[in-house]
Amino acid sequence: MITVVDACVRDGAGGSPTLVADDEDGDRCAIVRSSGASHGAFLDLPVVRFFTGTAELRNCGHGTLAAHAVLLSRSGRPRQRLTQHTGGRAYEVTAARRPGGGIAVWFDQGPVTIEPPPAGLGQILGALGIGDPGGIVVASPGAPRLLIPVADPAALAPDFPRLARACRDLGLLGCLVYRLDGPVAWARLFAPAIGVDEDVANANSSGCLAAHLGRRVEVWQGDALGRPSAVWADTDGRTTRVGGVVRLR
Rank of each mutant, 00 (worst) to 15 (best):
L72R: 07
W106S: 10
A155Y: 06
G120I: 06
I114M: 01
V4D: 06
G226H: 04
G142R: 05
A90F: 11
G237N: 00
P192Q: 10
L173G: 00
P133Y: 04
R77T: 07
P78L: 09
F51K: 00
A127E: 07
V47P: 00
S75L: 02
L45Y: 03
A95E: 06
L189F: 15
S16G: 13
A37I: 03
Q123G: 14
I130S: 04
T18N: 10
I136Y: 00
A201D: 11
A203M: 08
I2F: 08
W232C: 08
R33M: 02
L121I: 11
C208P: 10
M1D: 13
V4I: 13
P111T: 09
L213H: 06
G100S: 13
A210G: 06
C208F: 06
D6N: 15
C8A: 15
A127M: 05
F50A: 03
M1F: 02
C8S: 14
P117W: 05
Q123R: 15
R168C: 08
L128A: 11
G53I: 01
Q80C: 04
P192G: 10
I124Y: 00
R49N: 06
W232E: 13
G100D: 14
P17R: 11
G171F: 08
S16W: 07
D152N: 12
A143L: 08
I31N: 01
F42V: 08
G110A: 12
A210V: 08
G237C: 01
D199E: 15
V231E: 01
W232P: 00
P111K: 09
G122R: 12
V70K: 01
G26N: 11
S229P: 04
G131D: 14
T64Y: 04
Y91W: 15
G61D: 09
E24I: 04
D159H: 10
R215W: 01
V217Y: 00
D108M: 07
G76W: 14
L170S: 04
R249T: 12
A210C: 13
R49A: 09
E218Q: 06
A41G: 12
A30H: 05
A104H: 14
F50T: 02
V48A: 06
G237S: 02
G129T: 09
F50P: 03
D11V: 12
A67K: 01
T235C: 08
V20A: 10
S34E: 15
G14P: 06
Y178D: 08
A127P: 00
N59F: 12
V196Y: 03
S205R: 03
V93T: 09
G135W: 01
G182K: 10
C167E: 12
T52D: 05
W220V: 13
